Simulated scan of single mutants.
Amino acid sequence: MTVSEAKKKEYYEALITKNSQYDGIFYAGIVTTGIFCHPTCTARKPKFENCLFYETAEEALIAGFRPCKICRPLSYPRDIPEEVQLLIDAVEEHPEKRWQEQDFKALGIHSATARRKFKQVYDMTFVQYARSRRMGLAFKEIMKGDKVIDQQLASGYESASGFNDAFTKIMGNPRKKENIKLLWAHFISTPIGTMLSLADEEYLYLLEFTDRRGLEREIERLRLSENFRIVPGKNHINQLTEKELQAYFRKELKSFSVPIRKKGTPFQQSVWALLDEIPIGSTWTYKDIAEKLGNADKVKAVGNANGCNQLGIIVPCHRVIKTSGELGGYAGGIERKNYLLSLEKEMVLTKKGQ
Rank of each mutant, 00 (worst) to 15 (best):
I16N: 02
I16R: 10
T17W: 07
T17M: 05
T17Q: 05
T17V: 10
T17I: 08
N19D: 14
S20E: 12
Q21D: 15
D23V: 04
G24Q: 09
G24K: 07
I25N: 12
F26H: 03
F26R: 00
Y27V: 04
A28E: 04
A28W: 07
A28D: 06
I30A: 01
V31A: 14
V31D: 12
T32D: 14
T33H: 05
T33S: 04
G34Y: 08
G34R: 01
I35N: 10
I35M: 03
I35A: 03
I35Q: 04
F36K: 08
C37W: 04
C37L: 15
C37D: 05
C37A: 14
H38W: 09
P39L: 09
T40Y: 13
T40I: 09
C41G: 10
C41A: 08
T42C: 01
A43S: 12
R44S: 15
R44N: 09
R44E: 15
R44I: 09
P46W: 09
P46T: 12
P46D: 09
P46K: 08
P46R: 13
K47A: 08
K47I: 00
E49Y: 06
E49L: 07
E49N: 11
E49V: 11
N50C: 10
N50G: 13
N50F: 10
N50T: 12
N50S: 10
C51A: 12
C51H: 05
L52I: 08
L52T: 07
F53N: 07
Y54W: 03
T56P: 06
T56L: 10
T56M: 14
A57C: 10
E58I: 13
E58V: 14
E58S: 12
A60Y: 10
A60I: 09
L61N: 03
L61W: 07
L61E: 01
I62R: 13
I62L: 13
I62E: 06
A63E: 14
G64S: 09
R66D: 05
R66G: 09
R66C: 02
K69P: 11
K69R: 03
C71N: 12
R72L: 15
P73V: 06
S75Y: 01
Y76M: 06
Y76S: 10
Y76D: 03
Y76W: 15
P77R: 06
D79Y: 14
D79L: 15
I80P: 04
P81G: 03
P81V: 02
E82L: 05
E82H: 04
E82W: 07
E83W: 00
V84H: 08
V84T: 10
V84D: 11
V84L: 10
Q85M: 05
L86S: 05
I88F: 01
I88L: 06
D89G: 03
A90I: 06
E93I: 01
E93H: 02
P95R: 09
P95N: 06
E96L: 00
E96Y: 14
W99P: 01
W99E: 00
W99D: 05
Q100E: 11
E101M: 10
Q102Y: 12
F104C: 01
F104S: 02
A106W: 00
A106S: 03
A106F: 00
L107N: 04
L107C: 00
L107F: 02
G108K: 01
S111C: 02
T113P: 00
T113A: 08
T113N: 07
A114R: 01
R115G: 06
R115N: 07
R115M: 13
R115Y: 09
K117N: 03
K117S: 13
K117D: 12
K119Y: 14
